[in-house]
């Protein structure tokens, strides 16, 4: 037993206290870090979904055979089921855009002054962190006739349909 190196002992104690304080600071920060990473993923997923609809809507005819308006205009107006999608060509196009991302598509439109929402594509039940991307398209009688759809649009009228793409990662 001797009384040497007491400063070293105090230094060790001081350093240990600082390290504990540092670890506490980082641990408390994790409450902020966790939602930050989740939000970043949500932003990325929402942007991907928005881009997919924008590409389908605005791509030139040489890039895609049918654009979003034509794909929606060709709808047969039946409610989709998990086994039977009512807009198969649209499903094929979106599937090409969204690799490894699950999605459903709903169509919202005004009929007799009330908003009607129909499921067009169903691939499953959306999870908690799902995002929704929307894009309106305008249908005319000529567009519907050309696409062979079942929409009821008179020759001097327009029909605004909102395409709702609900996307999530599993």
């Amino acid at each position: 037993m001797n009384d040497k190196a007491q400063i070293h002992t105090l230094e060790g104690l001081f350093a240990a206290t600082l390290m504990v304080l540092t670890v506490m600071l980082i641990t408390r920060s994790s409450l902020i870090i966790t939602p930050q990473s989740e939000l970043s993923m949500d932003v990325q997923l929402k942007q991907t979904a928005e881009d997919a609809l924008a590409i389908l809507d605005m791509a030139p005819g040489t890039a895609l055979q049918f654009n979003l308006t034509e794909l929606v205009a060709g709808g047969n107006m039946t409610e989709a089921t998990p086994q039977d999608n009512s807009l198969k060509p649209l499903d094929t196009e979106i599937d090409t855009q969204l690799n490894d991302i699950m999605y459903n598509v709903d169509l919202a439109y005004v009929e007799n002054d009330t908003l009607t929402v129909k499921h067009a594509i169903i691939h499953g039940a959306p999870v908690e962190n799902s995002v929704v991307a929307t894009r309106p398209v305008t249908l005319y009688n000529s567009t519907v006739t050309q696409a062979g759809g079942a929409w009821n649009v008179s020759s001097n009228d327009v029909k605004v349909v909102e395409v709702r793409l609900i996307a999530w990662r599993v």
Partner: peptide, 29 residues
Amino acid sequence: ALSGLTISISLVLVAILVNEAAITGYYSS
């Protein structure tokens, strides 16, 4: 003793930096 103090202060600074970056990311997202 001096190097111990320097390293400890550096760790505190790094922790503050990480915290600030996380908050910035949260608000920008």
